[in-house]
Amino acid sequence: MRSIISISLSLLIVLNSITVAVADVLPGLSSITESNIRDAAIAFVNTTTSPGLEGTVLNVDNNERQSDQWRSSLGFNAEFTLNDYTFNGYWGLKVFGGRLEDKLRFIDDNGQNVQINLTRDVVASSGSLGLSFPINQHFKLRPFLSLIASDLQSKTVFNDQYVIDNDLPSNTFRSRAQMWSGIISLDAVYSRWYGDYQINLLGQYSSIYTQSFSEESAVLDTEAWNDTLVAKFKLTGPTSLSSAGKPWRWNTYANYTNFLSHNKKSLGYQSLLEAGGGMDWQVNIKPLNWFGWEYIGFKAGLIFGDNVRGYSIGLTTR
């Protein structure tokens, strides 16, 4: 290992709202299965921690469901050269935080409306290690492994008109689960300059194995496989602006994320398309004389697709 040659650091909060087609008839409470509960818990953790998606706050609002979800992360990933080898090493560290507030309406067996307020909180940290294979100057393949440790806390409150079990002193239920995930990812990265303009493309596929342990909830003592697909496009160009003698560049981007194996019922969405723009300042420093940090900037974008509409704001570095 000789030197770190690149870094990307993200501290990003994305805000968006989702509108799903209004359902005429509320679903029956008996339609909820243990499998649905497991899927929803793991889907929440995966959407919080999956590679390639920096952050989200989602709002689902329809006849049967109102939910808010946010996610932010702080971390970096870097390539480092390995002397006498054509391939480079790749590693990353990241911490995540996420919250889901889900209000669901159902019809019980007596035909009465039932409202369930569900709150989930997760904190997680991950480490990644892999290799980067430069095929030519513009294109590289980057397989890497990530391990994620998560702590999930859930609180479920049934509405006052409905008590699920008369023997229980309260209609509030709490549970906690510890999860670990192993992720195999493959990045395909393309970068090319046309005059003063640069195009960056990234395709990423991840296969995620999650194991959950809970002493309080047998439903959350489970495991699952999931996979996600991410595609990113970014175009950057020069500006006449500079700060401290260092130039600013504009950028416009489009990101598509598809949680391929997640049931849409789990969180109310399955894919996100985000498009926007921002400015990058070429700070070009080398923290700890260890890794190169070339740009810091900000971005703002809109979110579309898969019944998703909204906006995003964030701070980005690379």
Partner: peptide, 15 residues
């Protein structure tokens, strides 16, 4: 090619 210049004890600049 850059000029490598220590900014302080914690980072260097590429100029």
């Amino acid at each position: 090619l850059y000029v490598w210049e220590p900014t302080n004890s914690y980072w260097a600049s590429r100029l």
